[in-house]
């Protein structure tokens, strides 16, 4: 889309664009280029010399069983977070759409987790489930469940999924509620007159009309689980036990900043960039479609 009526000249717009272009250049294009360059280099152990190794780092990363395990963990983690947060968000939105009394209170409280940093969501859940002091952990042990997420891989995964999904429910709730409220009441009334039960009305009318919102939210949730949950992992499990919760972003950070393997870390960064670009492309294709849909 373009405007018909515009101002002339180029000096003033150049001046207006300068700050953003400068920041973008220095903190976006330069590091991105560095990452790509670094990903094709190898440094010796003392950092004295570097040599060009082309795709060797990528081959090493993609052939590394630890990397593949981390990719699998990431996939499992993000699908679990997305499914849980979407299901909870949808359920609560459907219910909130039906009530009149107290609707504002429900909505306000359900929005609150959005304001909580992922890292802090992690701390809140850690406090509940810490094997020695957590109130739920102690309760579980009294029920005969041997709860110790510091040793049990499945329990660790469950805990980080719960913390990550808890924070994301607000967002999904808000978008599902907006989607529900945009469905024309006349459609639902017509099918009610035709004798469709509430359950049938939901699955045949509401759910299909929510499909665009759901798909959009699915991409957003996966991006969130991939990239925004570093703080949860870092606070709750540090990727453990035995790397059972080491998601890709955590591994990039760990290999680069703790392991100091810059070539591998940069190659991992470049792979992550490709994943984000792919997800964004999917999302934009979908947004195009949504415009036609509406």
């Amino acid at each position: 889309m373009e405007r018909r009526v515009v101002f002339s000249g180029w000096l003033f717009p150049a001046f207006l664009l300068m700050p953003q272009l400068a920041v973008t250049l220095v903190f976006f294009f330069w590091p991105a280029a560095q990452a790509i360059l670094q990903s094709m280099r190898r440094e010796d152990a003392f950092g004295l010399s570097t040599q060009f190794v082309a795709a060797e780092n990528f081959a090493a990363v993609l052939g590394d069983p630890f990397y593949l395990a981390s990719a699998e963990v990431t996939l499992l983690f993000s699908v679990a977070v997305a499914v849980l947060a979407l299901a909870a968000g949808l359920l609560l939105a459907v219910m909130a759409d039906r009530v009149v009394r107290g609707a504002a209170v429900y909505k306000t409280v359900l929005l609150l987790p959005y304001a909580v940093a992922p890292a802090i969501a992690g701390v809140l859940w850690l406090f509940l489930f810490n094997p020695s002091i957590g109130i739920i952990a102690v309760g579980l042990r009294r029920l005969g469940i041997d709860w110790n997420y510091l040793l049990d891989a499945d329990q660790a995964m469950l805990l980080v999924v719960l913390a990550a999904a808890w924070k994301q429910i607000s967002y999904n709730f808000l978008f599902f509620l907006a989607g529900l409220q945009s469905i024309p009441a006349s459609l639902l009334e017509a099918s009610a007159i035709d004798g469709a039960s509430p359950r049938r009305r939901f699955w045949t009318i509401v759910f299909p009309l929510l499909a665009p919102t759901s798909f959009f939210l699915l991409v957003v949730n996966i991006v969130y689980a991939f990239f925004d949950t570093f703080g949860i992992i870092h606070n709750v499990t540090q990727g453990g036990p035995a790397k059972a919760t080491e998601i890709l972003v955590y591994k990039v950070w760990y290999d680069g900043m703790v392991g100091l393997d810059l070539g591998s870390s940069a190659a991992q960064s470049v792979i992550l960039m490709a994943i984000v670009i792919g997800l964004t492309a999917i999302q934009f294709r979908f947004i195009e479609r949504r415009v036609h849909y509406a």
Partner: peptide, 12 residues
Amino acid sequence: TLMLPVEVRIIP
């Protein structure tokens, strides 16, 4: 720049 969150280009 919309596409790439800071998380994927942290080390550079």
